[in-house]
């Protein structure tokens, strides 16, 4: 459905390298995630695929159309939700939706099926101006606007940034339903915990893809044994563990520390070290890494 080969994009006459020789493919019906912090190059890739930017070199096709020469055909079959929720603040929900429907030469009624589940949630407020909506509601409206012409591919650039946990969960539920209807979805996010909700992901940093695979395979490729360390005074233990010579990496992770060890050191070695320092009530156990652990490891390896 989407094929990207060796895309390079620089800004300011080549001084800023935004996308550095990136290639990947997205299959029809897939939910594909670009995961990475700000400045990873996610938005640039989105804009190149939505024909808004020209790459310096490399080629890309969307639905078989070339992003440079056949941009009109691409514009006919994609839906796009830019990073900032792009709505007219002074128009109401209904007016926004109607406007975008018209621009895409369709009507709300024609494709109502696709947006019904989402639209009913905001419909009670349909006469309210978009500028007065909460982040979650704006996000839903923007999604409706991107879907209104029944696109074949949906590009969502950081749809959950700055939105609270409740809205984020609801949003991913909506994406799941859309995927079931056969839509191909490309989504970007800086939240690592959302990675596991995608079929396949590309972990990105500084214009490079660090790894690209299914979340399960990426986790499986984490070859180290990972331990979780929990203690009453986390910061003290963290500093202590960092000065432990057998520690390969140790960082805070939610309510515990994540620890990897050098060579063939074991939990027992750690326990001894910790007890020797008079720490009490320290629990250490082996755990399965998640995407964030993998990302941190990949960042350190690079």
């Amino acid at each position: 459905m989407i094929k990207v080969s060796n895309i390079v994009k620089t800004y300011n006459k080549g001084s800023v390298q935004a996308v550095n020789d990136i290639s990947f493919e997205v299959k029809r019906g897939e939910l594909f995630g670009l995961i990475g912090p700000d400045g990873a190059g996610k938005s640039s890739i989105f804009r190149i695929l939505t024909t808004l930017l020209l790459a310096d070199s490399g080629t890309a096709t969307v639905n078989g159309f070339d992003v440079v020469n056949q941009f009109q055909s691409i514009r006919n079959c994609i839906g796009y939700m830019p990073g900032r929720f792009s709505l007219y603040q002074d128009l109401t929900i209904e007016e926004n939706l109607e406007f975008f429907a018209t621009v895409f030469d369709t009507t709300i009624e024609e494709n109502y099926d696709l947006i019904r589940d989402i639209y009913v949630q905001i419909e009670p407020f349909k006469d309210r101006r978009a500028g007065k909506l909460s982040g979650g509601m704006k996000q839903k409206l923007a999604l409706c606007c991107a879907l209104i012409h029944k696109p074949e591919v949906l590009f969502l650039d950081e749809p959950t940034t700055g939105v609270d946990v409740v809205s984020r969960r609801e949003f991913w539920e909506m994406l799941k339903k859309l995927k079931q209807q056969g839509l191909t979805i490309v989504v970007s996010t800086p939240y690592m915990d959302e990675a596991s909700l995608c079929d396949r992901i590309a972990l990105m940093q500084g214009g490079h893809i660090l790894s690209i695979d299914t979340p399960q395979n990426i986790i499986a490729s984490y070859q180290k044994t990972l331990y979780a360390v929990a203690a009453p005074n986390m910061y003290k233990v963290l500093t202590a563990m960092r000065s432990y010579e057998q520690t390969e990496s140790c960082f805070a992770f939610g309510d515990c520390l994540h620890l990897t060890l050098k060579g063939d050191s074991t939990i027992d070695d750690v326990s001894k070290y910790i007890t020797a320092l008079n720490f009490t009530d320290v629990q250490i156990q082996e755990i399965v890494p998640d995407i964030e652990d993998c990302f941190i490891k990949l960042l350190k390896e690079n």
């Binding site: 800086p190 910061y235 805070a252 350190k300």
Partner: peptide, 20 residues
């Protein structure tokens, strides 16, 4: 106020080191 929005996981932790 949301000091770590959009920052990569490693830098985020370094930021929290500063907070600690």
């Amino acid at each position: 106020d949301e000091p770590t929005g959009g920052v990569d996981p490693v830098t985020r932790r370094q930021f929290w080191d500063l907070i600690y």
